[in-house]
């Protein structure tokens, strides 16, 4: 009987720790992805402004990064990852479906843009539509620190 209690306690502790570790992992992983978005976007924005030469391969790689990250991000905001060192607004968990919808749109918009962009003109016409998803999400769900 005693063994069973100890086992239950150990199991519970392990469960809670794994849950906490998962929350921390999710937080770290989503920040790595979003930080990566930012780092990859910077040189592309420079192309938009004409500060850097147009590089089709780099643009397509960035769009692929968005699509890949956008597929993972909805799963990286578990309910227990609200607190900690995060700029995530509590509104995310009140409107999780709407929030996830922005990532779904980012993914399809990135894929559509990747197919549509063939030269500098189509890049300038299509890339801002993708960036619009960043703005839409940051406006509503990112708390400025």
């Amino acid at each position: 009987m005693k063994t069973l209690q100890i086992l239950a306690l150990v199991g519970l502790t392990a469960g809670v720790s794994v849950g906490a570790a998962f929350a921390a992992d999710a937080l770290g992983e989503r920040q790595t992805i979003l930080k990566g978005f930012g780092d990859e976007t910077r040189p592309v924005v420079a192309m938009m402004k004409g500060e850097a030469p147009f590089d089709l391969a780099k643009v397509k790689a960035t769009l692929a990064t968005y699509a890949e990250g956008a597929a993972k991000l909805p799963g990286l905001f578990p309910d227990n990852s609200r607190t900690g060192k995060t700029e995530a607004s509590p509104k995310i968990w009140d409107e999780k479906t709407k929030f996830d919808g922005i990532f779904a749109k980012l993914k399809t918009d990135s894929e559509t843009a990747s197919a549509a962009i063939t030269d500098q003109a189509s890049f300038k016409a299509n890339f801002p539509k993708v960036l619009g998803n960043c703005k839409a999400c940051h406006d509503d769900y990112r708390v400025k620190k």
């Binding site: 801002p128 539509k129 993708v130 960036l131 619009g132 998803n133 703005k135 839409a136 406006d139």
Partner: peptide, 10 residues
Amino acid sequence: SNKYGAGNVA
């Protein structure tokens, strides 16, 4: 345009 036109910030 700010609320719904995020893709056309200009």
